[in-house]
Write a protein that binds this DNA or RNA. Structure first.
Lengths: 206, 206
DNA sequence: TTTTTTATGGTACATCTGTATCATTAAAAT
DNA sequence: ATTTTAATGATACAGATGTACCATAAAAAA
């Protein structure tokens, strides 16, 4: 046999090419031929490693989710241990499309969401579960902030975590659609975090 | 000539058919032949009344925006004059996909958003302007609430209005994606409105 | 060295896409 | 009654799409 190639590596390579094409043409407009050219391979190879296009899409979706995880983790490490407020801000800021890479990410993400709404074969389950994990982390941080007297004791941390995730998603949409720029979205986000975790302290027991 | 038909009426009819198809197949998957069949017309007629498909998409987008306006206005009238809180809740609740019609609307809306991100010819300007008007209405209602002593004087009404719009959009996304059901989303929304406009009063001058 | 297996290229195929063309009905204008 | 014009139908066309099939180079196994 020839080179005896690493299949997983090849799949990553192809998936990355798909995502690059999808960033400009959209997911539905990413044809196999164009993806093959972008990856520097033949169409036949995409068939060989994925079989059908739908499987390629699913694989690429997981690839995308992993990218997001990596980005969030990187920001978390960069934020260090600045306390709950810093951690939450790091996570949610990453969710905003503030640079080209991030914008590309969100464009493809939106494309996936739209596709999954009408294409039942496209299961976005894994991505939703990732979002759930993040939401739970935020809730935990809010609880920690309460315990440290940095947040009002009356706060419903579960509802607040859900709200923050939704706020972040909504702001992202606005930035993508052009209604807001990244700086404005960031300002809104920090304003809400300030309202949630103000500088002043509360008595730990209410 | 034959029947001497009302062009605008025909266009509405065709646009409605497109949206009906798009609700199940997605916007990108709504072929002219299928739309024609759905409308009970021939493909040729769609060409006759719209020329190109892109113009049909643009027209349908306006059609969709008008539908949304109508829905919001209907809810506003139904809400009567229950004060700022009731008005804001009416507007934002309408934005949540709580029934089949509303869900269909949001599916198509998301499809449009995704398309417009990669298809430069699809100008979503009008829709963005509609959203801006709604946001200004909400800001005005918040100001009214402040003046009536129903909201904290320190509130930045502009940022809060933007936040509420983003929150609503994000919640809608979650409902569409299946992470939340409509009831949960509504609960989150009302929780945030309670936090913003609590039952208790403030002194009008701070 | 022969045989088997893996990796790859090329290409043909059926289907679907939006659009263009040719033709026709029928009402209004003259 | 004739001419013009609005409205509609049928169908052909060029291109793109995902997939299937046939071939082959080359490395590992025998």
């Amino acid at each position: 046999m020839p080179k005896l190639v690493d299949h997983e590596e090849r799949r990553r390579q192809i998936a990355a090419a798909l995502l690059r094409v999808a960033a400009t043409r959209g997911l539905h407009g990413a044809g196999l031929r164009e993806v093959a050219t972008e990856a520097g391979l033949s169409v036949r190879l995409i068939q060989y490693y994925f079989g059908t296009k739908e499987q390629l899409l699913l694989y690429a979706a997981r690839h995308l989710a992993i990218q997001l995880s990596d980005r969030v983790l990187a920001r978390l490490r960069a934020a260090g241990d600045g306390g709950p407020r810093a951690i939450i801000e790091a996570i949610l800021s990453e969710a905003l499309p503030d640079d080209d890479d991030s914008r590309t990410f969100h464009v493809i993400w939106t494309s996936y969401l739209a596709l999954s709404l009408t294409d039942t074969a496209l299961d976005m389950g894994p991505l939703a579960r990732d979002a759930d994990v993040v939401e739970k982390v935020i809730a935990a941080q809010l609880r920690a902030a309460q315990a440290a007297g940095q947040a009002p004791p009356g706060l419903d941390v579960t509802l607040e975590a859900t709200s923050l995730m939704a706020l972040s998603a909504g702001l992202s949409n606005s930035v993508l659609a052009g209604g807001l720029d990244a700086a404005q979205a960031g300002a809104v986000l920090r304003y809400q975090l300030d309202r949630l975790l103000p500088p002043s302290d509360w008595p730990a027991d209410g």
